[in-house]
């Protein structure tokens, strides 16, 4: 059987809220090392990769590898019934056709159980190469969210250019154009506000803003978003979930035909 208890149930709520508009349904894969998901959006332009480590759970048991297909909209409906401070336990019997979500309030005076029907989902599993990236930018997650939101009001795509000291986000649209530059800033007294750039080579790539806006829904999970870029490769946008794992998004670049 599979059984996993997350004391900070809010994390699971936030993860599902971050991905439910991007992917319709997905297989959640559980094995002894943890709980993970890999899924492409419906237009196959981006990829979501979630991994929650077994040791990030308060209790974790997985007797055999299971893949549980769920509709994200349904999962979201159920998780919305959990309070932000509830602990969430997921349970499923081997070969079962449902997964049970149990919500416990902090004082354990309220206990609720919701069963979600599992579904068979055919999904293509992609092999993500372990790339060395040309540039890595770690910036406050809220800042990244604001940048992609603001630029979306002007254009549809963003050119992200990283140099040694700064990262520049630029867009062009019918009404004009916009550029936002963030300088490296390793403020030791305010680590949550730091912007750090690690670069092997200057890089400049163009991406559809619609997807980056969708990725930014993961903002509540982490203080920082980490962007990893290499010439003519998908961007990796990572949100580290402290002590538990990470939620990562890959987006194919726009490339001149």
């Amino acid at each position: 059987m599979f059984e996993a208890r997350l004391a900070q149930g809010a994390l699971l709520k936030k993860v599902v809220e971050a991905i439910k508009d991007l992917i319709e349904d997905a297989n959640f894969d559980c094995n002894s090392s943890g709980f993970s998901l890999q899924a492409m959006d419906s237009s196959h332009v981006s990829l979501v990769a979630l991994s929650l480590r077994a040791d990030g759970f308060e209790h974790y048991r997985c007797d055999r590898n299971v893949s549980m297909g769920m509709k994200l909209a349904s999962l979201s409906k159920i998780l919305k019934c959990a309070n932000g401070d509830d602990a969430i336990t997921m349970k499923s019997e081997d070969n079962g056709d449902t997964i049970t979500f149990m919500f416990e309030s902090p004082e354990q005076e309220r206990l609720s159980e919701f069963d979600l029907k599992l579904m068979d989902i055919d999904s293509e599993h992609l092999g993500i190469p372990d790339n060395e990236y040309d540039a890595t930018v770690k910036l406050p997650a809220a800042e990244f969210q604001r940048i992609v939101k603001d630029l979306s009001t002007i254009g549809d795509t963003v050119e992200i250019s990283v140099t040694k000291d700064a990262v520049k986000f630029g867009t062009t649209g019918d009404i004009g154009n916009a550029n936002i530059m963030c300088r490296q800033n390793k403020a030791a007294d305010k680590p949550d506000e730091s912007t750090e750039i690690d670069i092997n080579e200057a890089v400049s790539l163009t991406f559809a803003l619609r997807y980056l806006n969708s990725f930014a829904k993961a903002t509540p999970l982490s203080t920082h978003a980490v962007l990893k870029l290499s010439k003519e490769l998908p961007i990796l946008v990572e949100y580290h979930i402290p002590e538990v794992g990470r939620l990562a998004f890959y987006l194919a670049p726009k490339i001149e035909d």
Partner: peptide, 14 residues
Amino acid sequence: GSGQRSIASFFGAG
């Protein structure tokens, strides 16, 4: 113009 490629064209089936 700039084309949008699929993510699968970068990451092969694994």
